[in-house]
């Protein structure tokens, strides 16, 4: 079944550019790296289809053994675009792609989902699921990914509910810090005896003379790190904005 799909996917990638109609209705779950049981696949796929039907947004999960010669950022974009994921004219959707050989994960959000899941949310979601991915609990990680996406998408469409617990916790935290600072300031008013460790006020006026001054350049080091990708999708089939981010697991 999986081998069949791999061949199908390769063929579709090649043909889809020429015949876009073939790319329609790609499955929302593609387990090319064979990480899930049949039962897990069935349950995840059912949930993904529920989400698509309720919000008109594709939430997609894909795993591959390797991205080959593709850089993983380019691969996930090709995967999403060439297989025709996304609902509506702006191709609203979000995809999580795992590349097992490189231990890379990437999340791409497109269209309406890009407004709901910005780069910050992508990294937040990544922080949530990476421990499970690292432990090999792929089904749990994917289930968490779906629900985190649903939370953000639902919030974007219907507005976020007032988070009573979070607001209370943050308010108590601010109150605690403010109270601590205030009583520390009040307490410090009672302490006026401090040793002086300097003699600056006894410097003879005009007595300082600089006779030696050198700034010798020794060497330089340059550190380079890949920047998180966030691009505006004004080209191709993507009408709205697009965010891509991720890391290692």
């Amino acid at each position: 079944m999986k081998r069949l799909f791999s061949i199908l996917f390769a063929m579709m990638l090649c043909i889809a550019l020429a015949v876009p109609a073939l790319a329609a209705d790609a499955p929302l779950l593609y387990d090319g790296a064979d990480l899930l049981t049949e039962r897990q696949e069935y349950e995840l796929l059912r949930r993904l289809e529920e989400v698509r039907d309720e919000y008109r947004v594709d939430v997609v999960i894909a795993t591959v053994d390797s991205t080959g010669s593709y850089y993983v950022d380019d691969y996930v974009e090709e995967f999403y675009d060439q297989l025709g994921y996304g609902q509506g004219p702006n191709h609203d959707g979000v995809i999580l792609l795992l590349s097992m050989e490189e231990r890379d994960y990437r999340i791409l959000s497109n269209g309406l989902a890009a407004d709901a899941i910005t780069l910050d949310e992508i990294y937040d979601i990544g922080d949530e699921i990476v421990p499970d991915l690292s432990d090999g609990d792929y089904a749990d990680a994917f289930a968490d990914f779906i629900e985190l996406c649903v939370y953000e998408i639902d919030g974007e469409i219907n507005g976020f509910p007032f988070d009573f617990g979070k607001s209370l916790l943050i308010s108590l935290g601010i109150g605690l810090v403010a109270a601590l600072i205030a009583v520390l300031v009040m307490g410090s008013q009672l302490r006026s005896v401090h040793a002086r460790n300097t003699a600056g006020e006894y410097t003879r006026p005009g007595s300082m003379h600089l006779t030696r001054s050198g700034d010798l350049f020794l060497y330089r080091t340059v550190d380079r790190r890949r920047r998180p990708k966030e691009s505006s999708g004004s080209s191709g089939r993507s009408g709205g904005s697009r965010n891509v981010g991720g890391g290692k697991f």
């Binding site: 410097t203 003879r204 007595s207 300082m208 003379h209 600089l210 006779t211 030696r212 001054s213 050198g214 700034d215 010798l216 350049f217 020794l218 060497y219 330089r220 080091t221 340059v222 550190d223």
Partner: peptide, 13 residues
């Protein structure tokens, strides 16, 4: 880029 320097100062006060 980090540039490393050796800075010296001398004098009287």
């Amino acid at each position: 880029e980090t540039q490393h320097y050796s800075v010296t100062r001398g004098g009287t006060i």
